[in-house]
Design a protein around this nucleic acid. Structure first.
Lengths: 243, 243
DNA sequence: TATTAGATTTGACGCGCGTCAACAACGGCC
DNA sequence: GGCCGTTGTTGACGCGCGTCAAATCTAATA
């Protein structure tokens, strides 16, 4: 289990340019500036389980995921961890700490083999001077994240585990589909889903079973059949089900 | 208890200009632009307890506190509330929702009589086009908030109430003062401190008494005497005190 | 296909903290 | 100074959820 930091630092030029070209963050940046930007970046390969960033250390820049997935987890010194977000391909993380030159508040660990691109803080700050569009994109990204985090705090603080789980499942279904039954696949192992919901895997297991016994869902492996979305959403609102 | 929304909308020009001139956010904005900006703003007076912004509603712009204090609280439909932040004079809130035109994630309520200035979203977006310095300030503010919120989630999720309280008290003392005893004043009523720490006032009361009995602190009204900062910090780290 | 490390489930048990309720302590106000 | 609404304290009690441990089940490797 190689837990090395900065395992595979490289400079895969095509990869870097592809990533920079595809990130919403840089859509408004002129091709010429993109070239300059890409020249200052580097790429890195990480095996599943490899640590990309440690809480308390200063990130070298903005991380962009090219392939694979990375988890951002808050850690409590000890073993307990709270999964803050899973970063998928084409998404970025560590913006805030990179821009401020501050220690990262979370660990970043690859949960699959992954390739990432690092865009150095200096390059970001330079872009800010030159490209107004980039500043706006960055502001949107940060603002979006702000709302997300607020919601997260709300859920963590004033909802019970059952409500958080119900909300999570409901969000997986998405906005489409009305009342009809449908099945969704958990995008993560149940252990990680539990961490994402701020609970232990044992608790998640029990809550899933309860929802199953109540006829709201049926779980098989990682696929969840939603049988009664109405009651699922009711549970998400923190109601107390009549029993 | 007038709980009116937008009680005292006014256009107190001197107040507005003073606030705009003093906010770090606008330090880099040219005086000329400030005039334009101020022209688009309005001020409002709020009595203690007045609601300035409701969770789920779209804020008209960025709120800046001129006098008094405002609490930002996440709400759970019901009575339970989690105090996210107390906004003091010269600070701002609702940046993220205002910029994105999204519903606010929290309620904003004046906890003292207060005067505020509202800087309309449109004015902010306009400034972004013209003043790079403003964009940078805004990014710094948002990034700062991001780190703050992450820390908040970490504390809420993987620390017990006792550790959060100890951390809070330790933060009140600040970086100065080494081991010597010192006293700090709680900046809020205990009920609000409890909400800020994500617990009920009854629990806070018990935790304070425990810390007192352990000889770590002594509480009298709102002033807290720190008798053993070492042990306070140990408790903040989530250690389990030997007993 | 045998082996094995990791993921998931389930039960027993305990602690933290919320809830309900009664009371004490203040802070205004007339 | 006495009345009263707000705030803080204390006890009893229960539930949610973490912890520990053992039993399965799954998936990757030899």
């Amino acid at each position: 289990m190689s837990n090395g930091v900065n395992n595979g630092v490289q400079r895969d030029r095509p990869l870097i340019e592809g990533v920079v070209a595809n990130l919403p963050l840089f859509w408004s940046v002129s091709p010429a500036q993109r070239q300059v930007l890409a020249a200052g970046c580097w790429s890195l390969s990480a095996a599943r389980g490899a640590s990309l960033l440690q809480a308390g250390s200063r990130p070298p820049g903005l991380f962009a995921v090219a392939y694979g997935a990375v988890k951002l987890a808050l850690r409590n010194g000890g073993a307990a961890e709270r999964l803050l977000r899973v970063v998928a391909a084409r998404q970025t993380f560590a913006e805030a700490s990179a821009l401020l030159g501050r220690p990262a508040p979370y660990d970043a660990v690859a949960i699959t083999d992954a390739k990432l691109v690092v865009i150095p803080s200096a390059a970001l700050l330079g872009l800010l001077e030159r490209e107004t569009g980039f500043a706006k994109s960055l502001i949107n990204t940060l603002a979006e994240g702000h709302l997300q985090l607020c919601a997260e705090i709300g859920a963590a603080t004033l909802q019970r585990g059952a409500a958080r789980l119900a909300g999570y499942l409901d969000a997986l279904v998405g906005n489409g589909a009305g009342d009809a039954e449908c099945t969704v696949e958990l995008p993560l192992s149940k252990t990680l889903v539990a961490a994402r919901l701020g609970m232990k895997k044992e608790t998640l297991s029990r809550l899933l079973r309860q929802l199953g016994e109540a006829g709201v869902i049926a779980v098989s492996r990682r696929s969840v059949l939603i049988r009664d979305r109405g009651r699922l959403q009711a549970a998400a609102s923190g109601h107390r089900s009549a029993d």
